[in-house]
């Protein structure tokens, strides 16, 4: 155990080069195979690779990535880039909105890595066990047509993730075999993970700190009778 001295730990786990040749190569190969489907990309050196693809090439992107060895399906989800109309600093801001303060002026939508044009972006991640690298895919979905082709025929695991994305964001996935609700009741209205969906728990009970502001039902009745 001598070699495990503290001096030894100073050596970084992976010597991060200024340029990430492996991920550059992956991106180059992917771009060459998908053609003009690649709309944007981002590489954080030694860490991760983001690729934004065209919606028409969304399914093809999965197939290409799978044939490139990215066979492990990590997750599929979405991002709503709309800044929250209820404020985004602390949850107390939301209470203000509920209490009557007008909602903030809508801020400009700023997409993250690999850019984007629309409010909603699909987000999916695949991993290559042999290469030890993952790719995060993004795909713009225009507001008026929130549909995308399903991945579940390429990656069977996408089935559940797309069901989740459908009810949480209100997307629809073409060709999905079993599009039933995952979490929410059938008659639930709304898409909870959209930014403009208010967190109802905040409305019925203020936050933070005020505990049991409403008396228990039985207690209230007794007090009412006593008075």
């Amino acid at each position: 155990m001598d070699q495990l001295s503290s001096a030894d730990t100073e050596t970084p786990e992976e010597a991060a080069p200024a340029t990430d040749d492996a991920r550059e190569a992956v991106l180059a190969e992917f771009t060459s195979r998908l053609g003009d489907g690649v709309l944007g990309s981002h590489i954080r050196v030694g860490d991760d690779l983001w690729i934004r693809v065209d919606r028409a090439h969304w399914l093809e992107a999965a197939e290409v990535a799978k044939s490139m060895g990215y066979r492990f399906f990590d997750f599929l989800s979405a991002i709503d880039w709309l800044p929250s109309p209820f404020g985004r600093d602390m949850d107390a801001q939301e209470d203000l909105v509920v209490a009557g303060t007008p909602a903030k002026e809508p801020e400009a939508i700023v997409q993250g890595y690999a850019g984007g044009d629309t409010r909603f972006q699909l987000l999916a991640r695949l991993y290559s066990i042999s290469a030890g690298m993952g790719i995060t895919f993004k795909c713009d979905l225009p507001d008026d047509d929130l549909t995308a082709p399903t991945w579940s025929n390429v990656f069977a695991g996408a089935n559940w993730h797309e069901r989740e994305a459908r009810e949480m964001f209100g997307f629809s996935f073409d060709g999905h075999p079993n599009m039933i609700n995952m979490y929410l009741p059938v008659d639930f209205v709304g898409n909870p993970l959209r930014k403009d969906f208010p967190l109802l728990a905040r409305r019925v009970r203020p936050w933070p700190g005020i505990v049991d502001v409403e008396p228990m039902p039985g207690v209230a009745d007794e007090e009412g009778e006593g008075e």
Partner: peptide, 26 residues
């Protein structure tokens, strides 16, 4: 895994929680 999107605030903008059991049981 956690896919954390931050916009420089006190709170994250979006956190995607990739939990193991969700995929395992699917």
């Amino acid at each position: 895994g956690y896919y954390v999107v931050s916009k420089g605030d006190l709170v994250p903008f979006r956190v995607k929680i990739r939990s193991a059991s969700f995929n395992n049981i699917s």
